[in-house]
Design a protein around this nucleic acid. Structure first.
Lengths: 217, 217
DNA sequence: AAAGTGGAAATTCTTAACCGTTTTCCGGGA
DNA sequence: TCCCGGAAAACGGTTAAGAATTTCCACTTT
């Protein structure tokens, strides 16, 4: 990413802060002070303020008038709300993909699944596993050809990154996740909308349960 | 809205520009130049730039590096993409509402529908009609209790405001729209998830057709 | 006359300094 | 201990200025 392109400082700051928040390096509730970030990032206030505006609209930071920005706190309800929406959009995505996915994309999907399987069994680090998991879903989203859908759902996905990682820390769930991916792929190959929908719903529902359990610690 | 609250200038600018874009006062492709807006809105560049950052993230304006902001152009595909997602989220909303809507909210919904009907038959201006239509759907969204869903779908709704207006300019569709609303309300009263889902899907699908026709002029 | 070119003007992007307002916080007094 | 008052900190906004880039027009060249 960002190898050749010119990128305004505000976008560099935006992506830096965004990543830091999603990775948990900035804790929920932590204040984002302009002068402090000025020093830490080596840029002036303007790009920082503009980056914060974007994070604000995305819901990753909350503004308190005349007090400043703070990393948004996420309640259990927030997470369940996100998952409810994400489930619905994933259902839509897999239905659309059933109709629109190309043979090449199906091949990609199969490869992606194998790689996912390998990274699971070979005990790679969690982030690598998560990467592959995301990739599998991303191929399905891309196959819908709906830019808006892709953008919205990948955003929701990112907002749950921390919890998705927690979910993947429990190796007991690997066989199930893998089997669910296989089911979904099979449905896509056979272009069976309804079964695909049911399969992805189960897949997400299980995630919900896992996240629920994780949170209650 | 915004009666009692303190609101930063940047948010005033944001809402002003947003409204102007959605209302069609700023045409797609039109450039948003900082100095020009500075004069027109009577504020300095800082709040304007911050407002533009938010509009950028929302997709209402597109940035060309070192060239500036311009009102985003909307293609037919964009619209259909939005409607595809919106349909899915409306389905989710009505399903959730079936389970969660309170008796008071059902009353509100019934009243809202009557007002909608009155504004249709009394030949009110289009914006008043659109207002009531939006209100009807908003009550359903609120009944889901899912803040994220409410935020996302109302955003999608707003992005289509211009085309929704076009849709409502054709009085021939009024009886059908009204009947569809009645169906949806009836399903909610009886708490029938599946029929409600089907009803709202028909409702949106009809809108899609209408928008399609509108665009092809 | 058409096309390419040079350069001035306009615009963005970023830094910097400044001021009013509000919040935070600390220390001193009742 | 609790309250209060003022200094410090931080935000919100304005202004100015300069580098980088794009735009556009007039001028030159073929």
């Amino acid at each position: 990413m960002t190898i050749n392109e010119y990128m305004p400082l505000r976008d560099v700051v935006f992506h830096t802060l965004r990543r830091a928040i999603l990775m948990g390096e900035l804790e929920p509730g932590e204040r984002l002070m302009e002068l402090q970030l000025t020093e830490k990032l080596g840029v002036s206030r303007t790009p920082i303020r503009e980056a914060i505006r974007k994070l604000e609209l995305e819901g990753l930071v909350v503004m308190v008038p005349r007090k400043g920005a703070a990393v948004a706190k996420i309640t259990e309800k927030d997470l369940l709300d996100v998952l409810e929406v994400r489930c619905s959009l994933e259902e839509l995505a897999v239905e659309l993909a059933c109709e629109r996915i190309s043979e090449e994309a199906l091949q990609l999907l199969e490869n992606s699944m194998k790689e996912f399987q390998e990274s699971l069994s070979s005990g790679k680090d969690i982030t690598a596993i998560a990467e592959k998991d995301v990739q599998f879903h991303d191929i399905i989203f891309e196959a819908t050809g709906n830019r808006r859908l892709i953008q919205m759902v990948s955003n929701l996905q990112e907002q749950m990154y921390r919890y998705r990682i927690e979910h993947l820390k429990n190796p007991d769930t690997y066989p199930q996740i893998l089997q669910e991916h296989e089911e979904i792929l099979a449905c896509l190959v056979k272009r069976e909308r309804e079964t695909a929908r049911a399969a992805i719903r189960r897949h997400i529902t299980n995630q919900v349960e896992e996240v629920r359990r994780t949170i209650q610690d």
